[in-house]
Simulated scan of single mutants.
Amino acid sequence: MRDRSVIIGAGTQGQIYASYLLEAGIDIVGFIDDNPSLFGKKVVGVPVIGCYSDLFTSRFKENIQAVYCPIGDNHIRVEYLTELHKEGYKIPSFIHPSVSIGPDVTLGKAIYMLVGNIVMPHTTLGNYIMINQASTIAHHVIVEDGTFMSSGVNVGAGIRVCEKTYIGMGVTVMTGVKSLGKNCLLGAGSVIIKDVPENAVMVGNPGRVLKYQKNDYNVQCKP
């Protein structure tokens, strides 16, 4: 019997994943979304069946086995999936069949990868990672938990992408860079030629520090 699954977030990312998950034959019974105006409605043909707090109720636990959370905010995605896994839900990965993954790549849990990505050998992907389409990760790279990569990203060889890094569309990280610091953000189109500090927002070609983000996130998971 297939697991009855839900997708958290009925926005554009959730809609995209709904299309691919349904195409893959996964039993998606509904969206979970905290926008009350969506309750009882269908989004891309999938009903919105409740809000996040509902997932902690016995009614949902008895009828839902698996949760997907393709939310682009790294902090929310990690917190939600961590908490729901503790609650007993399965948190499967979804990797589109077009993705090319080297034979000895190490994969964590709850990894979401869309069309046309390439991951070269001797690379490690952690947990709760999202990678949009047509991105390339070279060999001997370590991608830590909760990272997001947008479309058309190119990450060179031997780089450590630290926890909750956010990499914008079309970013290139050159081989020779050693690390992208925890919770950093790389703006769209940036070319990164040196190590990125923790919490830094980098933009431009070559990439430069624009500012530093606050690291004071306090996501409330349970109702």
Rank of each mutant, 00 (worst) to 15 (best):
F94R: 00
I95P: 10
P97V: 01
S98I: 04
S98N: 00
S100V: 13
S100N: 14
I101Q: 07
I101P: 05
I101K: 09
G102L: 03
P103D: 12
D104P: 06
D104E: 13
T106M: 14
L107A: 09
G108Y: 06
G108D: 13
G108N: 13
K109L: 09
A110T: 00
I111Y: 08
I111P: 07
Y112F: 04
G116K: 07
I118V: 14
M120W: 14
M120C: 13
H122W: 07
T123R: 04
T124I: 15
N127S: 07
Y128H: 15
Y128W: 12
I131N: 00
N132H: 04
N132K: 13
N132Q: 15
Q133E: 11
Q133P: 10
Q133S: 15
A134G: 05
T136K: 08
H139R: 07
H140W: 09
V141Y: 10
V141C: 13
I142H: 08
T147K: 04
F148R: 01
M149Y: 03
M149W: 01
S151T: 13
G152P: 03
V153C: 14
V153P: 04
N154C: 08
V155W: 02
A157D: 09
A157Y: 10
I159L: 14
R160H: 15
V161R: 02
V161K: 01
E163Q: 14
K164M: 03
Y166G: 11
I167Y: 06
G168C: 09
M169P: 05
G170R: 13
G170D: 11
T175S: 08
G176P: 05
V177I: 12
K178D: 02
K178Y: 02
K178L: 06
L180F: 06
G181R: 13
K182H: 09
N183E: 07
C184D: 02
C184M: 10
C184N: 15
L186I: 12
G187W: 07
A188S: 15
A188R: 11
G189Y: 14
V191R: 08
I192C: 11
K194Q: 10
K194R: 15
D195S: 07
V196F: 05
P197Y: 14
